[in-house]
């Protein structure tokens, strides 16, 4: 029971991470296209300014939760995806320092340089997470000790690459929808134009990914909880987001792209359950929520902590969004 609780908690934390950092990454990927002058780029960065740091903690929380509740999963996943994880961490370094450093100097060349790094740092994490999640669902060659025995190239199979593209695409749309809620005037129009243009491509690539998921993985054959219609619902949400953008329902467009992320993440976890690392070599070597977990006492301690802390965290993060709910206008004080 506790094992299932923790699997659900890890999924919930990942949902929080992808939903919140999803638009942060999207805004970062759109930065070169949205902001034509330095001032505009600063406004674009300020839309996520008060939030991005708190949003990124959801990723650290996901890491911490897996470490504490499923140490074997933590060890196998991170050492197995070794170079990919370091590339992800490199992206996070670039992002974190560039947003903070860029406006501390006046030179435009300095700022351009950090903006480019911010763009790279925003595109790497979604790409890597897409590849990683697709591989997790599909299964990777891990041996009886839970160690990855494949190569880096084996992780870059077509299904995984489509997964990477899908996450990037969805986050771009999610970021554009977020910008439509936070900006006015010229920037608002530009965000809307971007959302309008990318929506068909996002819907298309998402559809291919869902299709491949049913055919490429053995989710249907395996004994686990079948994801059933959830991936389809996720796709319908992203379709809905595209339609809402066209109809001019900005808030609903953001809700829909968010819902697509929630349901997409949920379908990945449903497809894995009750495994957490699927071995493509021998099903008996797969890590499950039972053989990879901490002992019941440890899980109990962590459950109490999580049940007490998570509602408080959600409450004060929601409050911070409430404080900065006003749209950014041109004559506002900017920090970045």
């Amino acid at each position: 029971m506790l094992n299932i609780t923790w699997f659900v908690l890890v999924a919930v934390i990942f949902v929080g991470y992808f939903f919140l950092e999803g638009f942060d990454y999207g805004v970062g990927m759109l930065l070169p296209f949205m902001g034509r002058t330095d001032h505009e780029r600063r406004v674009v960065l300020t839309t996520i300014g008060p939030f991005w740091d708190g949003n990124e903690v959801w990723l650290i929380a996901a890491g911490g939760a897996i470490f504490a509740a499923f140490p074997d999963w933590y060890a196998s996943m991170l050492s197995g995806f070794y170079l990919a994880i370091f590339l992800l961490l490199g992206g996070l370094i670039l992002r974190g320092v560039s947003i903070e450093f860029r406006s501390r100097m006046e030179g435009l060349r300095w700022r351009r340089w950090w903006d480019t790094l911010f763009f790279i740092g925003s595109i790497l994490p979604p790409l890597i997470w897409g590849v990683a999640l697709a591989n997790l669902v599909k299964g990777i060659p891990i041996n009886a000790q839970g160690n990855y025995v494949g190569t880096l190239l084996q992780l870059l199979n077509p299904f995984a690459l489509v997964g990477g593209l899908t996450v990037v695409a969805v986050f771009i749309l999610h970021g554009a929808a977020f910008l439509m809620l936070r900006t006015t005037g010229e920037l608002y129009e530009r965000a809307k134009h971007v959302a309008f243009k990318v929506a068909p491509a996002v819907i298309g690539v998402f559809f291919i990914f869902i299709l491949m998921m049913y055919y490429q993985t053995d989710v249907v054959r395996r004994l686990g909880l079948d994801p059933g219609p959830v991936p389809v619902l996720a796709w319908l949400s992203i379709l809905g987001a595209g339609i809402f953008v066209r109809r001019g329902h900005d808030k609903w467009a953001f809700v829909s792209s968010g819902l697509a992320i929630v349901l997409g993440t949920a379908s990945m976890f449903l497809a894995m359950f009750p495994d957490v690392m699927i071995s493509s070599l021998n099903p008996r070597w797969s890590l499950t929520i039972y053989n990879a977990s901490s002992n019941p006492y440890s899980l109990k301690v962590m459950t109490i902590m999580a049940v007490v802390m998570l509602p408080i965290i959600v409450a004060y993060q929601a409050w911070s969004y409430w404080i900065f709910r006003r749209r950014l206008t041109d004559n506002m004080k900017l920090e970045y």
């Binding site: 300014g49 708190g54 903690v57 911490g64 939760a65 470490f67 504490a68 440890s298 902590m305 802390m309």
Partner: peptide
């Protein structure tokens, strides 16, 4: 990890969220 992971996870729940959210504020 069974014992060592717990303080790291609690650190995130009790400190990192608080620190970064209120820093933004």
């Amino acid at each position: 990890g069974d014992i060592f992971g717990a303080p790291l996870a609690i650190e995130v729940l009790m400190a990192f969220f608080l620190e970064s959210t209120f820093l933004g504020i």
